[in-house]
């Protein structure tokens, strides 16, 4: 999935969770892990996500 689209999904999920807390612990832990993974990827992603695409990140 496109890197910035994924970040958009995460940010939207965080806003939803703030307004209407409905996710269970497992979902939240998984989202939190995804945030950590994406944070590590940010400096490696080239313009347009090209580098990420070819490296399968």
């Amino acid at each position: 999935m496109d890197f910035q689209v994924r970040i958009g999904d995460i940010v939207r999920a965080a806003r939803e969770e703030m307004q209407n807390p409905s996710r269970n612990l497992k979902e939240l832990v998984s989202l939190n892990d995804e945030v950590s993974r994406l944070s590590r990827l940010v400096p490696r992603v080239g313009i347009g996500g090209f580098l990420q695409a070819i490296n399968g990140g």
């Binding site: 910035q4 970040i7 995460i10 940010v11 950590s36 940010v42």
Partner: peptide, 27 residues
Amino acid sequence: CPALPKQHQEELQTELRNAGRVFANRI
């Protein structure tokens, strides 16, 4: 393939940090 501009990287990191804070607080 140059990396994303620094400012853009920082914006993304800030968004992610804020989202992470929300999830961590809920957890």
